[in-house]
């Protein structure tokens, strides 16, 4: 009688868990289970991903190694299996080994990291230069060689944000005026801001650069393929920090030239992010 009861309890537990798991299944199919960087579109993005893989491999190996010991001890050296405690508490040799070896592992890691970093920070000889100015809460762009200027603001309708309308694919990642650049060209981006800190962040281009009011900072990218690449402001800048995306259209040189001539026809009325604005903002 008793046995039967507990079996019933157990089986109902199984049923419950089973049902839950079954219900959870559809999640899997809907989900964009992205567990990695966004696919990169620059050489640097690939380098960074590789670097990340190297660090992860080192970490996982050490992690598994260390905790293999720990779990071995947990299972074999437990009191309940009658293990008697040893009394050692020092061993200079192993202590030196486990101080020195990690040091060399890290030195090995530092090498590729340094190489990538130096490449990343080399903004010399760009093919073109764009100045990106962060505002609360939009971006202003200025193509320094072409004299093109425009603002770029979130294009997602408020109704989608409030939930009164269905959210569309590029929810929060769409703007009225995207940045347009030619493929395969080294684009140098100068960042600055007009009010508070912002950061110009486009994951697929492996670019994140803080925009500091009053200072010009620079970064660069060279897109490998055409396409639309989306990012967001990545430095807390107040109320609408989550709502000032960055969209970069990478196009062929021909399309770019067409775009440029179109833009030049629109008269740029305002100098973006200059001294006057800053001083006005300062007082």
């Amino acid at each position: 009688m008793k046995e039967w009861d507990s079996m019933k309890v157990a089986s109902s537990k199984f049923k419950l868990i089973g049902t839950l798991l079954f219900l959870a299944l559809p999640c899997l199919s809907f989900a964009a289970w992205n567990m990695d960087f966004q696919p990169g579109n620059t050489l640097l993005a690939h380098d960074i991903r590789e670097l990340h893989v190297i660090v992860m491999v080192i970490c996982v190996i050490i992690f598994v190694g260390v905790f293999a010991f720990m779990f071995y001890a947990i299972f074999k050296h437990r009191k309940s299996v009658g293990h008697q405690a040893a009394n050692f508490h020092e061993n200079t040799t192993v202590e030196i080994i486990w101080t020195v070896i990690p040091f060399f592992i890290l030195a090995g890691l530092a090498w590729p990291a340094t190489e990538t970093l130096l490449a990343m920070r080399d903004t010399s000889t760009p093919d073109m230069t764009i100045k990106a100015t962060g505002y609360q809460w939009k971006w202003g762009y200025e193509y320094l060689d072409e004299g093109i200027q425009f603002y770029s603001t979130l294009a997602t309708p408020q109704e989608q944000i409030n939930g009164t309308e269905k959210k569309t694919e590029n929810y929060l990642l769409e703007v009225d005026n995207p940045v347009v650049v030619p493929v395969g060209k080294k684009v140098r981006v100068l960042t600055t801001a007009n009010d508070v800190l912002h950061a110009w962040y486009v994951p697929a281009l492996a670019v994140k650069q803080d925009a500091v009011p009053g200072f010009i900072r620079d970064t660069w990218f060279k897109a490998e393929e055409t396409g639309v690449f989306r990012g967001q402001c990545a430095e807390l800048c107040g109320k609408l920090h989550g709502f000032m995306p960055i969209v970069v259209h990478v196009v062929t040189q021909e399309d770019y030239d067409i775009w440029v001539s179109e833009q030049k026809n629109k008269v740029a009325s305002r100098h973006i992010g200059g001294k006057d604005e800053l001083v006005a903002g300062a007082n």
Binding site: V66, F69, M70, H77, R78, S80, H83, A85, W98, F103
Partner: peptide, 24 residues
């Protein structure tokens, strides 16, 4: 990166403390 070295020493020491103990 260097901070990983002394922190590692601590982690290793803790595991070595458990090693061949009489754990509960």
């Amino acid at each position: 990166m260097l901070i990983a070295v002394p922190t590692g020493v601590k982690v290793f020491n803790w595991v070595a403390t458990m090693w061949k103990g009489s754990l509960t």
